[in-house]
């Protein structure tokens, strides 16, 4: 009830206004949400529609949203034209490993940046944030040379090592950790709990929404990464789904219908993950009973 009151600044408060006005507000909220949702779903609807067309009709204007002769065969072609299953597996493997590693290393570092005092902390943190500012296009050649020195080119390990230690993850989690009241941590310290104990038994349980956020962001980023696999993976059996999608784009033309069919199939794990982790956005401090 409290959240409803504070956050519905667009609608009106129930306690003071009449029930009628409250209902009007709700109605307007829903109307706005439905219109917005329609615009958000347009690319999805277009992808579905395009995936069922012949390639020559994909970009025809005005758009025929419901194809008169749906080409269901596009969905079987994608599995035979390219080794889609292998690519799917490779993407899944990379996404799971990188996301888990990033969650571990980032949350560890973020705790130190947020809640521990040590010399050089602020400068180090600025270096982390600053590193995000440099476009990858600039340092990808030096990075590639370095990877060749380690003899890691054309292996999954190269991508794992490049993406497992992200400055973004540290920054994101630090901002969440910082907002957890110090009183809780100090109370634990007085009880003789070590910093590791505090991290595992207090910080992590309290940070589920943040960890869920990072999981979603990292997974989506790794799953959709194109440039990294493009440069580091040469062997056909190591390639990922995003490289597979580009195989339908050829030198003199592209099979956009197949691309969209494959892109939709590749979206399924991402959407599933999002739905799975959603519940954490309604379960924070507010509902875990810890109130400082």
């Amino acid at each position: 009830m409290e959240r409803l009151l504070t956050l519905s600044f667009l609608s009106t408060s129930i306690t003071l206004r009449s029930l009628f006005k409250f209902k009007m507000g709700k109605l307007l909220t829903y109307a706005a949400l439905i219109i917005l949702a329609f615009f958000m779903l347009l690319p999805f609807l277009w992808m579905v529609s395009a995936s069922l067309k012949l390639d020559k009709d994909v970009f025809r204007f005005p758009i025929e949203w419901i194809p008169s002769k749906p080409e269901w065969s596009n969905y079987t072609t994608i599995w035979t034209r390219i080794p889609f299953m292998t690519f799917f597996g490779n993407s899944l493997k990379l996404t799971v490993i990188i996301t888990l590693l990033q969650l571990c290393t980032s949350s560890f570092a973020a705790y130190a940046f947020a809640k521990l005092k040590f010399p050089g902390r602020d400068w180090l943190f600025l270096a982390y944030v600053g590193s995000i500012a440099i476009p990858w296009q600039v340092y990808m050649v030096p990075q590639f040379i370095l990877m060749r020195q380690f003899d890691l080119v054309d292996s999954h390990l190269s991508l794992i090592l490049l993406q497992a230690f992200s400055a973004f993850g540290v920054f994101l989690l630090r901002q969440f950790f910082v907002s957890i009241p110090d009183d809780i941590l100090d109370a634990a310290r007085i009880d003789g709990m070590s910093e590791y104990g505090i991290f595992f038994r207090i910080m992590l349980p309290l940070s589920k929404p943040a960890l869920a956020t990072l999981t979603i962001f990292t997974s989506v980023a790794v799953w959709n990464d194109f440039m990294g696999p493009l440069i580091y993976l040469n062997s056909q059996n190591l390639k990922t789904i995003q490289l597979g999608l580009r195989m339908f784009i050829q030198q003199y033309g592209a099979d956009y219908a197949l691309i969209m069919a494959a892109a939709l199939v590749s979206l399924i794990p991402v959407i599933a993950l999002f739905l799975l982790l959603q519940r954490f956005f309604v379960e924070g401090i507010a509902s875990t009973g810890v109130k400082g």
């Binding site: 050649v141 590639f144 060749r148 493009l230 490289l243 580009r246 784009i249």
Partner: peptide
């Protein structure tokens, strides 16, 4: 055969050569 996405072909070859491939 080392297969490279057609639209990025020359960019990737350049990176490979710069890296001493």
């Amino acid at each position: 055969l080392v297969d490279i996405a057609s639209a990025e072909y020359q960019n990737v070859v350049n990176v490979m050569l710069s890296g001493g491939d």
